[in-house]
Amino acid sequence: MTRQVSVANLRTMAQRVLDHVHIEDIRLKSLSCDSSDVLLAGPFEVSTGISFRGVPRNRQAVECWIRYIVDATAGQADSDYESSKAWGLQLELIANFERNNSEELLPDFSADELEAFAFALGVMHVHPYARETVQSATSRLGYPPFTLDTILPPTAHPDDEVIDLESAEDT
């Protein structure tokens, strides 16, 4: 489900979670690569999709699951998509945020707070690792290394700006 939230509201919801946790580690959960049988010549049109979700773990930690789907087509994609697809990657990374106080359990965060946290902070924490993984994987497929664009933190926008927030279940 896609809904609209203001940047100020996004920041407030994410901050409620951040007040209780700190980043512990980031790991690559899965990576899937595919390419055409024959290396295709560029230029390539690359599309990137990012989905995210915040998951509580037994009131001990919060995990942010971030999925990237990156596909490259040679030149203009024609009606036969598979024949023009050069390469594709799907990767899922998890940012693990542990509780600040080992003596207390985490509060019960709402689904909106966890989603805002994953969007505002989870994506920003894993994106450098996703960039490196995509660059390395594309070169190992035999193609020129592709580097994902940098992204602007969603909380860097003006407070009254409205952002579309799409839950991971919809993607």
Score class of each variant (00 low, 15 high):
97 F>Y: 15
97 F>A: 11
97 F>H: 11
98 E>P: 08
98 E>Q: 15
98 E>F: 10
99 R>T: 05
99 R>K: 14
100 N>G: 11
101 N>H: 13
101 N>V: 09
101 N>D: 15
101 N>Q: 14
102 S>F: 14
102 S>D: 14
102 S>R: 12
102 S>Q: 13
102 S>L: 12
102 S>V: 14
104 E>V: 10
104 E>Y: 12
104 E>W: 09
104 E>H: 13
104 E>I: 08
106 L>N: 00
106 L>R: 04
107 P>Q: 07
108 D>F: 11
108 D>Q: 14
108 D>N: 14
108 D>K: 13
108 D>W: 09
109 F>V: 03
109 F>T: 01
111 A>I: 13
111 A>W: 09
111 A>D: 15
112 D>Q: 10
112 D>T: 07
112 D>S: 10
112 D>R: 03
113 E>V: 07
113 E>R: 06
114 L>Y: 04
114 L>C: 02
114 L>Q: 03
115 E>H: 13
115 E>P: 09
116 A>L: 06
117 F>G: 02
117 F>L: 00
117 F>S: 02
117 F>W: 02
118 A>F: 00
119 F>V: 12
119 F>E: 11
119 F>H: 10
119 F>Q: 12
120 A>L: 05
120 A>E: 03
120 A>R: 02
120 A>H: 02
121 L>T: 13
122 G>W: 00
122 G>Y: 00
123 V>N: 04
123 V>Y: 06
123 V>H: 02
124 M>Y: 08
124 M>L: 11
125 H>D: 11
125 H>V: 13
125 H>E: 12
126 V>D: 00
126 V>Q: 02
127 H>P: 08
127 H>R: 07
127 H>C: 08
127 H>Q: 07
127 H>D: 08
128 P>H: 02
128 P>Q: 04
129 Y>M: 09
129 Y>L: 10
130 A>D: 08
130 A>W: 07
130 A>F: 08
131 R>Y: 06
132 E>D: 15
133 T>M: 11
134 V>D: 08
134 V>Y: 03
134 V>P: 06
134 V>N: 04
135 Q>P: 01
135 Q>L: 08
135 Q>F: 07
136 S>Q: 14
137 A>P: 09
137 A>S: 15
138 T>H: 00
138 T>C: 02
138 T>V: 03
138 T>R: 01
139 S>I: 12
140 R>D: 14
140 R>M: 12
140 R>I: 01
140 R>N: 12
140 R>E: 15
140 R>W: 05
141 L>C: 01
141 L>K: 04
142 G>L: 06
142 G>R: 07
143 Y>Q: 02
143 Y>P: 02
143 Y>D: 01
143 Y>I: 03
